[in-house]
Write a protein that binds this DNA or RNA. Structure first.
Length: 906
RNA sequence: GGGCAAUUAGCUCAGCUGGUUCAGAGCAUCUGCCUUACAAGCAGAGGGUCGGGAGUUCGAAUCUCUCAUUGCCCA
């Protein structure tokens, strides 16, 4: 038993309304000042979480709020469970996004391009930008209350991280797992860089499909060939038909003339040609379509690239030279029409890729790029999930993961950007190459003398190439010699939990597993929690462009961080999307009221306790076992049950259930029932010592539930914990131990007994309400014909009697015989007579009551018929377990008895 | 085209391995209350053939199949 010092505030000082702004930032500052989340304790068991590094350009959105709240909950919970809980934050250099941001600024402020500055100067600019504007998200995360260890913050471009990236590249290159190849990749003509498959969004687009006439050599006869991209005909090298397609058998090997272009190309057979698609003939343009590229590879065809990196047509495109790709389509169609080479034009819906970042249509583009061979990596990564060393929550994501791994394609890692980790490949003038830390090492590797000129590859690496090493680099991994790594490496890796959105399962989660397994021979984390997607009331994803994503900071200002955190968690079921009504006009999310009202409820409960404590005086006593009422023992049982269930929920990653259990306990059990009962217990017993003991006991329950709630609502729990404990500001609830359930206090008997009381009270309240009694009007209540011994003993308890009288505002409550039944009750009281001594009743009241009874009788008759049917079914009686049959029989008896009573009254 | 999920009250969702939490919670609605913390509150009420159909079973919101609708991912 914990003895509480006098609450520091007396009621005059205790604020009437909860004002989160009065303490949220104060407490965060205090936590920071005392460095309570930075301290490591090597005597404790480690628990670690890796923060998905936000982009340097990032600003807080609701996805972050949910994600970081979840991480904070697990970190805080484990800290309170006695672990050395460390949360490693980071920041991502976000190649394309950042470069685009700085280029835009250059354009606007100085009307310059990056080429005007040159590579080195440009990178300086980016770094300047980063210092000035980068990472504002971290101060925003502080508003949310995240207890990360900011001392550990690492930037993906920091030296340590950059060295790891470079060394890993070299290792993979030397192993033959990185190669350079001329491939069709996703090209952004706007950013002028390659993109990985994962950086492309496919959307359905309504376009046209054009059927063109490819005439046979020296003939007016022609083949009809359908295409959606007529502008690429200058790159045509063949027409493919399906080998099984009899219609074209006679033409195979013959040549047709590319319309307008005039070049002769062969007709070939390939399974890729779908007899049912279009005309059955497909033009093969290996430089402009990934499928055509494969056909070209199989048949050893030429690859004619007719498009420039900026999306205009090049000099191989004849008259289209210099024209932008979509304009070129119109131009060539006009020419083809003129030459009567168009058979027909039809509407056509198909999928087109768009850059995830900029939204521009991507171009399948033939170019030299660097790739990582993924098949060997995938195998390692698949095993880690299949053998259960890494668990996904919810587990069904494993299916998506394995599906991707089974169908994995090589990863295009080069980007034609300046901002990022430069590819550590050095070329000699005669075209030899080596991957090396620097020129010196490259020369050594290539066996060259120091005067040989070398050129470093101009490209940088995909941003995710640094992200996949994140579990290692944040732990100060020494990429050349793992033995030399920082202590953190051995202590905190594998981390315990990763919380992330399922949208980056391939980008990041899968690749981290690959890299960590491959280079450190361990897993990066043991559990992965995939968060929900946040949508508005109509089901749209919250996004800036839709205007349906209010600024979380405004929401936090309005409702408080605790309220925001709680609501998000309360509404976000594991593995499903969260829908929250968004008031776009007001940029508001009204449902955050759930958390706000809850915070207010907790606050007021504390206010009540403080008041009673002051009333009782400041000496203290323990509530002895013998002086505990049924309600006291009930709340203890409920508390411990809640602790037990909630712990189970959170340990199995069911945070929503955790929050709901605490919400229900506090609101319903503690506030609605127990606090009301404490009031009567308090006023019915004037013994000072008893009063002190009772308040102490009530506060103790409250203190424990505050600790349970702290991970979800860190600020208000800290504030109230300090109010009831009178501890120094340097101490924190987050460093206290979380309560463990005391199973001795859990008693189903006591809970059942107490349920009889609550049910009785509810019945009386219903009767009062339906009798239109004024709340202030005192009446007598009687109960009789109690068959159940337990019910009888509970009700005859004098404490319970007092309670019922006071809570239901009765003049007296008596057990009595020969009282007419006026109202019926369903459950434990179904066979009891319960009646209120009412003043006079109006005709209307009686009529309304009769109607009610009639309805109730009908309902019962229906249920009885159902049970009778069940019981008369021999197969049920024979097959179902005995208890079930008995239960049904008892139910039937009770219902019949009840029906009888009602009928007597009608 | 392939994969993954979802469909329960007007809205947002609980409901684990089929039978005592079985049809629930919160919001919204209606009625009555400024009752010794809380009107951001309290008490009460109405509201659903658990997406359609079939099957398994003594028994299905729960398991299987199928159809429909919606969303996500991949090609």
């Amino acid at each position: 038993m914990n003895f509480y010092k006098l609450l520091k505030l007396n009621m005059k000082e205790f604020p009437k309304k909860l004002d989160p702004s009065s303490f949220e930032s104060k407490w965060y500052e205090t936590w920071k000042k005392n460095k309570i989340y930075l301290k490591q304790n090597k005597n404790k068991k480690p628990y670690s979480i890796l923060m998905p590094p936000p982009n340097v350009t990032g600003i807080l959105h609701f996805g972050h709020v949910l994600n970081h709240t979840l991480q904070d909950i697990y970190i805080r919970r484990h800290r309170m469970l006695g672990y050395d809980a460390q949360w490693f934050p980071g920041m991502d250099h976000a190649g394309i996004a950042t470069q685009a941001r700085v280029e835009k600024m250059l354009k606007e402020e100085h009307n310059q391009t990056r080429y005007d500055l040159g590579r080195e100067k440009f990178i300086e600019k980016v770094l300047e930008w980063k210092e000035k504007y980068g990472g504002i998200i971290f101060s925003q995360l502080e508003k949310l209350g995240v207890s990360a260890n900011w001392d550990k913050l690492l930037f993906t471009m920091d030296q340590k991280a950059s060295e790891a990236v470079r060394d890993v590249f070299i290792k993979l290159f030397d192993e033959g797992l990185i190669y350079r190849g001329k491939r069709i990749i996703n090209w952004s003509p706007v950013s002028m860089t390659a993109l990985s498959d994962e950086e492309v969004d496919w959307k359905e687009v309504n376009e046209k499909i054009y059927t063109l006439r490819y005439k046979f050599e020296n003939s007016e006869k022609y083949l009809q060939v359908a295409t959606v991209r007529p502008e690429t005909i200058f790159g045509d090298v063949a027409i493919a038909v399906n080998p099984k397609d009899g219609r074209f058998a006679e033409y195979i090997g013959k040549k047709v003339i590319v319309p307008f272009v005039g070049r002769a190309i062969p007709i070939i057979t390939d399974d890729y040609a779908d007899p049912d698609f279009g005309t059955g003939c497909v033009k093969i343009t290996p430089a402009h379509d990934p499928n055509d590229f494969e056909v070209g590879e199989r048949h050893n065809l030429e690859k004619i690239n007719t498009i420039n990196p900026d999306g205009t047509m090049n000099d191989l495109a004849g008259i289209l030279n210099g024209i932008e790709r979509f304009k070129a389509r119109k131009v060539i169609m006009q020419e083809l029409e003129k030459a009567e080479l168009v058979e027909k034009v039809e509407d056509y819906t198909h999928n087109v890729g768009f850059s995830q970042r900029g939204g521009e249509p991507i171009e399948p583009y033939l170019s030299d790029q660097w790739f990582v061979k993924m098949k060997p990596m995938a195998k390692i990564a698949l095993d880690a999930v299949k053998d259960d060393s890494i668990k996904f929550h919810p587990p069904h994501w494993m299916k998506t993961y394995t599906h991707w791994m089974d169908n994995i394609r090589d990863w295009c890692i080069s980007r034609q950007l300046w901002w990022g980790h430069r590819i550590p490949i050095y070329y000699t003038e005669d075209g030899r190459q080596a991957a090396a830390k620097n020129e010196e090492e490259a020369r050594a590797k290539l066996d060259l003398d120091i005067n040989t000129k070398l050129k470093q590859d101009p490209d940088v690496l995909d941003t995710w190439f640094s992200s996949w090493l994140w579990p290692m680099t944040t732990m100060n991994w020494d990429s050349t010699n793992q033995e030399n790594s920082d202590d953190d490496f051995a202590r905190y890796l594998p981390t315990n939990l990763l919380v992330t959105g399922p949208d980056i399962i391939f980008f990041w989660v899968a690749r981290m597993i690959m890299a960590t397994k491959k280079f450190s021979n361990t897993i990066p984390f043991s559990d992965v929690y995939f968060t929900s997607m946040i949508r508005d009331g109509k089901g749209f994803k919250l996004s800036k462009s839709l205007g349906n994503s209010p600024d979380p900071l405004k929401i936090i200002d309005k409702y408080g961080a605790d309220a925001t955190r709680f609501t998000m968690i309360y509404l976000a079921p594991l593995g499903q999307d969260v829908r929250m009504d968004v008031d776009v006009e007001a940029q508001d999310i009204p449902s955050i009221d759930i958390g706000k009202n809850f915070a207010n409820k907790i606050f007021n409960a504390c206010r009540f306790l403080s008041m009673k404590f002051n009333e009782a005086g400041d000496t203290r006593a323990e509530l002895s076992q013998s002086s505990k009422s049924l309600a006291d023992r009930w709340i203890e049982s409920r508390l411990n049950n809640t602790i037990k269930e909630a712990s189970k929920a959170i340990d199995s990653f069911n945070v929503t259930v955790y929050s709901k259990l605490l919400y229900d306990f506090i609101w319903r059990d503690y506030c609605s029932w127990y606090v009301e009962i404490v009031k009567t217990q308090f006023s019915n017993n004037e013994n000072e010592q008893y009063r002190q003991a009772l308040t102490t006991f009530s506060i103790d329950i409250f203190d424990k539930v505050l600790k349970m709630l702290h991970p979800v609502m860190p600020f208000i729990t800290e504030e109230l914990w300090h109010l009831i404990n009178d501890v120094d500001d340097n101490e924190s609830i987050s460093l206290q131990e979380t309560p463990k359930e005391n199973s001795e206090k859990i008693s189903t008997n006591i809970e059942n007994e107490f349920n009889i009381v609550t049910e009785l009270i509810e019945k009386i309240r219903q009767m009062r309400a339906s009798s239109n009694l004024k709340p202030s009007e005192k009446v007598e209540a009687f109960i009789s014909s109690i068959k159940d011994k337990v019910v009888e003993s509970v009700i005859s308890n004098s404490e319970v009697n007092q309670l019922v009288v006071s809570i239901c505002n009765l003049s007296s409550f008596r057990m009595s015989g020969n009282i007419e039944l006026k109202h019926s009750a369903n459950d434990v009281f179904r066979a009891c007579k319960l009646t209120l001594e009412l003043p006079e009743k109006s005709e209307e009241d009686i009529a309304a009551e009769m109607e009610r009874l009639q309805k109730e009788a009908q309902r019962l008759e229906k249920q009885i018929a159902g049970i009778q049917k069940k019981l008369s079914n021999e197969r049920f009686v024979n097959n179902a377990p005995k208890e079930v049959v008995e239960m049904e029989q008892k139910k039937l008896d009770d219902m019949n008895a009840n029906l009888l009573k009602i009928k007597e009254n009608l």
